[in-house]
Design a protein around this nucleic acid. Structure first.
Length: 289
DNA sequence: AACCAGGTACCTA
DNA sequence: TAGGTACATGGT
């Protein structure tokens, strides 16, 4: 089945992005992405390939989810419901972004449909290099060993927030996750499980300011982590990962500043308004060139 | 071998 | 409010 994109979508570019990451919650090979997930309570394994106007989805294993729910999952995951032309129209004359729009044309943000995944990554990713952060994530996922087996290959599933909240701190320590991060993770996962930090409840807030304030009132969730989750899971298109090291590196190049302050970067990024999220994602990509 | 990682909480003045 | 520090460990 085909999931159509609103505006340009270049599957290959998002595919290449996914290939560079080392996220064990999807499997990337031969221009195809496979992912196991629990959708609407049912275990599903599906694969995604590029299609002329969107993504092509093949379901390999399905324990009972509706096809429309799987389509919606893919639409959310690859952010296909967003009109990317709206972003391009806004930044076509932007000095930082315009030189890269041709190269990045059709590239879309890869989202975290599962908010526990988004929060876990936000906490694990704090202050350490990404390679190591992925090692830590993989250790957590493999520890639970929840998976869908298909043609002798394991496709890992994200453990539930409840399971993560119950994991002893010393088990996290054995994985070389710091005591502090273990506490952050357990606390956040418990709040997802209980409800306050669940996707459903966070989506009920009516303003960015309010939801940001609520999220950052939780221990371990600062402005960077909250905005990361707002971007990648809740799709707040005006979110900015305040304090982000990568974004500072972008500004060293684009604005020729030796050491950009968090305040300066935030002020400049806020000028992108409702396009801040895509501005961020695109500027991160420019660092790889 | 320092210094930096897609930070945050906590402390001090 | 502003500025410093511990955390914990791999990468470069």
């Amino acid at each position: 089945m085909i999931v159509e994109a609103d505006g340009p979508f270049d599957f290959k570019k998002t595919y290449n992005y996914m290939k560079q990451q080392d996220d064990c919650l999807y499997n990337v090979v031969d221009e195809t992405v496979r992912k196991a997930a629990v959708i609407n309570g049912y275990k599903v394994l599906f694969e995604v390939t590029g299609a002329p106007c969107g993504a092509n989805v093949e379901v390999l294993v399905n324990e009972g989810a509706d096809e429309s729910d799987i389509q919606n999952y893919v639409r959310d995951w690859f952010d296909l419901a967003y009109d990317l032309n709206d972003f391009y129209a806004h930044v076509e004359n932007d000095d930082r972004l315009s030189p890269h729009l041709n190269t990045l044309y059709g590239f879309r943000m890869l989202a975290y449909v599962d908010i526990a995944d988004a929060f876990m990554w936000a906490v694990l990713g704090q202050q350490i290099n990404m390679k190591f952060a992925y090692v830590l994530k993989r250790r957590v996922i493999e520890h639970f060993n929840r998976h869908v087996l298909y043609e002798d290959v394991k496709y890992y599933l994200m453990p539930s927030a409840e399971e993560l909240a119950a994991l002893p701190t010393e088990t996290f320590r054995d994985m070389q996750i710091s005591t502090r991060k273990a506490e952050y993770l357990k606390g956040v996962m418990a709040e997802i499980d209980k409800g306050p930090l669940s996707k459903k409840s966070l989506l009920k807030f009516d303003s960015y300011d309010e939801v940001l304030k609520f999220m950052t009132s939780h221990r371990g969730i600062g402005p960077w982590s909250a905005n990361t989750v707002l971007m990648r899971s809740l799709k707040y298109r005006n979110a900015v990962p305040v304090g982000d090291a990568g974004l500072k590196n972008v500004f060293i190049k684009t604005d020729s500043i030796e050491k950009p302050s968090t305040a300066y970067v935030e002020k400049e990024m806020r000028r992108y308004g409702r396009h801040s999220m895509y501005a961020t994602v695109y500027l991160w990509e420019t660092l790889k060139e």
